[in-house]
Design a binder for these strands. Structure first.
Lengths: 208, 208
DNA sequence: TAGATTGTTAATCGATTAACAATC
DNA sequence: TAGATTGTTAATCGATTAACAATC
């Protein structure tokens, strides 16, 4: 469908560019350039130039980039519709924190549903969304176009929940457990394990 | 001090190996090998062999590795003392969720303190730790050896809090805001921005 | 025109993978 | 010994950086 394949390394930097451009738009800045962006973000100048050329290709020599156009080019890489729809699985502390997360409101991610397996929680409303039973997820995803599922359940249930999401045709998973999830390679998984992150930091400061 | 410099790419995989070995130890498995590990974790065989050789170097031809010894070699990369001490800055939803995080208990990370700037929260006990005012952090870190600070404050306060941590001689920072923190390069920062993570997933599933 | 910025081509660097000799 | 595993050396791959020509 889209044949412009973006390297992993570039994908890692895209949110950085998006946040940066959003700030420029807030300040009503019209134009920018690879040089300026690279300085402000602490990246290599050529790296930024290559990234932007790949992402947009609308740079003008001597001029640079129109901020709004560039922002739109980034946006179209991320979604072809207005919102990316997400669901949260697991209405515990982490799930709750995510549902309330201060960044959602002005983002293009829309929380469609929260699911849990604890009957005491079903029916409760969290951040304007009613908690449903996990067994409803497949039915739910038939009527709602769910793009990403966020797994915030205890590790023992992680793979089982993951399988349910994949079975519901959800193609993106954000995994907050420390379990290495087993999925088809057409499903995109990213992991946020706090202990793993702390461990990596500990290694780096321990070996300075 | 430690001249065995570990490449970034290897550091990324170390928590994976640690979790894996922990499971083997639970199951009382004595020996393992690069081949087995690579299959179970879905990594390249040579990659695992090279990693383990760099990390430990105690592999025996035809035999493989002693699980417990290998686990200990990994441990000594992460810390030279019993615990890595952490503090949480920001006692909001995210901070609270992290303080209660189900993984802490059996990990080697010890939560020493929680700090906030909201006087209503000071003195409250959260997960057995009393919330203190952020202005106490420097004094606190003189008497406690704090290794890592976790920033869970609103974005507008992130850089200011970061500066306080660095000023308190804390060398590792886990940043839960979407702010690009400005630090000396002897400080190690890792970022966990949910929206950025979701964005990267959205790009990948949008460009399949 | 001169300067600033672009995009591209070539060189370098680092990480992964392949091939293979060494060994318990 | 033969097989399984190790560690190492060489080849490949991808990402970054350097050099430079093109252009508004």
């Amino acid at each position: 469908m889209c044949n412009k394949k973006i390297p992993k390394s570039v994908i890692e930097r895209i949110p950085l560019y998006m946040n940066y451009l959003d700030k420029l738009i807030e300040k009503d800045v019209q134009m920018t350039s690879s040089t300026i962006i690279s300085q402000d973000l602490g990246l290599g100048e050529v790296q930024v130039r290559k990234d932007l050329n790949l992402i947009s290709g609308n740079g003008k020599p001597k001029i640079g980039y129109y901020v709004k156009d560039l922002r739109q080019d980034l946006e179209s890489l991320v979604r072809k519709k207005e919102y990316t729809n997400i669901v949260i699985i697991g209405a515990g502390k982490i799930g709750e924190a995510l549902a309330n997360y201060y960044n959602y409101e002005d983002s293009k991610f829309k929380l469609l549903g929260i699911f849990d397996n604890d009957n005491h929680k079903i029916g409760k409303v969290m951040d304007g969304v009613t908690i449903e039973h996990i067994s409803n997820i497949k039915e739910f995803s038939k009527t709602h176009q769910v793009d990403i599922g966020i797994i915030c359940v205890p590790p023992t249930n992680a793979q089982e929940v993951c399988d349910k999401l994949v079975d519901s045709n959800i193609k993106g998973i954000l995994n907050f457990t420390n379990v290495v999830l087993n999925v088809d390679n057409n499903v995109c998984v990213r992991n946020v394990d706090i202990v793993s992150l702390l461990t990596k930091i500990a290694i780096e400061i321990n070996n300075e």
